[in-house]
Amino acid sequence: MTDTTATAPAPKPPSNSILSHARYVVSENLVTGFAFGLFALIALCALIGPYVVPYDPLASDTSASLQAPSLRHWFGTDQLGRDIFSRVVVATRLDFIIALSSVALVFVMGGFAGIAAGYFGGWTDRLVSRLADTIMAFPLFVLAMGIVAALGNTVTNIVIATAIINFPLYVRVARAEANVRRDSGFVMAARLSGNDDFRILLGHILPNIMPIMMVQISLTMGYAILNAAGLSFIGLGVKPPTPEWGIMVAEGATNIISGEWWIALFPGAALMLAVFCFNLLGDGLRDLVDPQRRT
C-alpha cells in the first residue's frame, strides 16, 4: 500500500543495469554471496584448471603410488601414483560440461514442452503430461543406466540420459507457471497486439517464468553432476583413465578399508561442494533474473 502513491513525486529513477543489480543480490544475502563465490571457483577450475595443475593428471608414477597427502602431493596419490589434486581439478571441466549441457538440453526440451502444455491445454497438455508421468514411473537412476547401456558408453549419451530423467521436473514447473499466466491480462493484451501463439509463448510467457525456472536449473545442475558421477561410479559413462569425480570415488572406494582414505575423499568432497553450491545458488539466480526485485 505504501509504495503506490499516485501523487507522490517520482523517486530517484531506479537503476535498471544488470550489474548493479547483481552486486546487490550478492551482497544482500550472505549465503547467496558464498554460493556465487563457490561457483566462481568451480567455473575457474573448469576454465583454466588443466593449464595450471602441477602434474599431468594421466601420468602414472608407480614409485610414488598410494602416498598420503603431503606438500608435494596436496591430496595424495592413487594406486598408479597419479596426483589426486591435479585429477580433481582437471575433472571439474568434464563434470561441469556434462551437467551444463544436459541442463541446457532439458531446459529447451522440457521448458518448451511444459509451457506449450500449460498454454494450449487440451491434447498438447495430455500428451506432454502423460509422457512426463511415464518417465516419472521409472526409478530415475535405473532409467539413466538403461539409456546409457542401450545407447552406448559415451559422454553424449550421459548428457542425453541425464536430460531425459530431468525432463518431467521441467515440464511440471513450466506447465504450472504457464497455466497460471495463460489467461492473465498481459497475455490477452499481447494477443490484441497481433502476437501469434509462438511469440506469446517465447516472448511473453517464457521471460515471466524465468525466475522460477532459474531455481529449477540450479537444482538440477547439482542433480545432473551427481547423476553423471553416479553413472561413472558404477562403470557406465566416462571410462578410465579420464579424470572424473565419480570414477575416482569408485577407484578409491576399495582402498578405504586398507587405510588410503584420501583417494575417495577428495573427489567425493569436490562432488559434494559442487552440488552444495548449485543448491544454494538457486535463490540468488532467481533474484537476479526477476525484474521485480530491482525496485
Binding site: S184, G185, F186, M188, A189, P207, P291, Q292
Partner: peptide
C-alpha cells in the same frame, strides 16, 4: 483492460 497491473507484462 480493467487491471492496469495485470495487463502489462512485468518484464
Amino acid at each position: 483492460f480493467q487491471d492496469p497491473t495485470d495487463s502489462l507484462n512485468p518484464r
